[in-house]
Design a protein around this nucleic acid. Sequence first.
DNA 1: ATGAAAGCGCTAACAA
DNA 2: TTGTTAGCGCTTTCAT
Lengths: 335, 335
Amino acid sequence: MTFTMKDVARLAGVSIATVSAVLTGKKPVSKELRARIEDAMQALDYHPDQVARSLKKGSTNVVGMVIPDVTNPFFTELMRGAEEEARRTGMSVMLCNTDGDPEIEHHQINTLLAHRVDGILLSCADSFTPWERLERRKVPFVFFDRLPVGYKGAGVALDNREAAAEATRFLIGLGHRRIAIIAGAQNVSPGIARLEGFREAAEAAHLAVRTQYVRIGDFSIESGYQCGRELIALPSPPTAILSCNNKMTLGLMRAMAEEKVPCPDSVSVIGFDDFEWSANFSPRLTTVSQPTRAMGRKAMEMLLDQINAAADAGSPGTVMFPSQLIVRDSTAPPR
Amino acid sequence: MTFTMKDVARLAGVSIATVSAVLTGKKPVSKELRARIEDAMQALDYHPDQVARSLKKGSTNVVGMVIPDVTNPFFTELMRGAEEEARRTGMSVMLCNTDGDPEIEHHQINTLLAHRVDGILLSCADSFTPWERLERRKVPFVFFDRLPVGYKGAGVALDNREAAAEATRFLIGLGHRRIAIIAGAQNVSPGIARLEGFREAAEAAHLAVRTQYVRIGDFSIESGYQCGRELIALPSPPTAILSCNNKMTLGLMRAMAEEKVPCPDSVSVIGFDDFEWSANFSPRLTTVSQPTRAMGRKAMEMLLDQINAAADAGSPGTVMFPSQLIVRDSTAPPR
DNA sequence: ATGAAAGCGCTAACAA
DNA sequence: TTGTTAGCGCTTTCAT
């Protein structure tokens, strides 16, 4: 049995409107009544009902966040940034996992929409996520990390192209000539852009990119492992490998350990997605670090701006964040 | 501009009650009208409003899930299990992070309660989480992984005591006599129970547990690293270490790598919380594995049972899951 | 089988 | 400053 405003009003001997007034704090209420009402709320252990409030106001104070993989610390770190920002304004975050499956994604978005979230943060399962649907539904949204192809609306992403290019240039600068890449899924923006950056840097240095040095994974440990084994087994194996996300790097390291390929002595490795674990590997991993937390905050900030905007302000477009190459012990000049 | 049942009713030329009837499917509706109504819904791209439904029905179809660390794959794996189970019944999960901070936990629970979630899954920040509060509020809840001290209600946990004991016995069986433990925070049930299990097994084997071999961490990488360094630096260092969660194990491995202590040649290591990453470390980690996904599912199942129960059924109490020791390459007999 | 109408708990005009 | 009241969009008796 839970009490409502009516109970509080009765106990305090006032009207429910006055109770509402002290709750919202937007109307002036005499000290006298305010005290009586607060006492009554206390006595009844009253807690306002967000559901009723939401129905009345047409907004829920909840935003949805959709990510491809909750077990990947990269995405949950983004979530922490987003939540941090949300909490400052009393917003809650509803986190949904898609496993990178467009069908599940579709379902999750439907659920979010049904619950009338005030906005959606979205890292899409594949590039063809129909953001038109969101537009049609008139719900504010911001894409982050994985953007649909051709999308020009509100978004937050790493400058993946430049990030990969910088990492590649670093390897070239070290003296490597046989450089391979384990690229991510090519149906998703970071996967595509990082491969482009790699190619760009290689070409700029007049390095031919041999096709057998380009392996396409799917961001999973297993695919990193597979691609790693294939690269190692090549007649003329690479002396350096750029691995395009944290999980694939893990698989790659296992492949190298199994085959007793010393890192960085025989093969240098640069991973993407720096995070707690990277520095605790042996060797400590050289990585392309993303300002993950900040990106999460920014995405939420843009979303809240949209939600609070008078619907006029034009789209801020996609904000690019710079990466930072963190050099540790997994890279060295070739022998 | 979003359409409501009224719009659908008008377009189909029926009353809103009939529209509601086809939506809920609980009342019979003639084929004739059903078709007209479905057409109208289609035409208007109508989607029922969960918020209004929730207010009317007094239930939201949302359950809250509160965990200490979203960036730890162990907890998010639990979440996946829980969500899997929830989705089968059309329930959504609202995930909240506490950073192990009782204050944040308190706040998150308040938010969940304000949003009138139908139930709460909770892994507590510290042992004194006041579950009485939840009881008072009459909201169904189930604790998982981290249980408050003295809690006897609905819960799901690993048999942590036996899990640690088994790991310890395994090390003893290998011939180790100088065995250390990096225990978890002692304000939380798994931290306590694992240390107890360790002590129990050691005593059963008539092994004195030297106090300098017992280090208390806080489940963070950093604490694992610190404790690891301290153990290694001992005049008579241990030949085997039991590390009580995944993150601390990571820190420990770094400490050993830095000090060039070969594993398992000089020191054997057993970690807790098996997961994708464990098998990809070098050496591949021997770990105490938990049926994480299944535990998440079970916790949600128990919660849904409570939610759907006629409030009569007595508490199922706490369900214990068995662990499994997965032997890989980080353990060997002492030299 | 269908419809009319009463609320669920709250906010926000509008009146007093 | 306070109270009255009309809904928000839906489900659910209760009539018809």
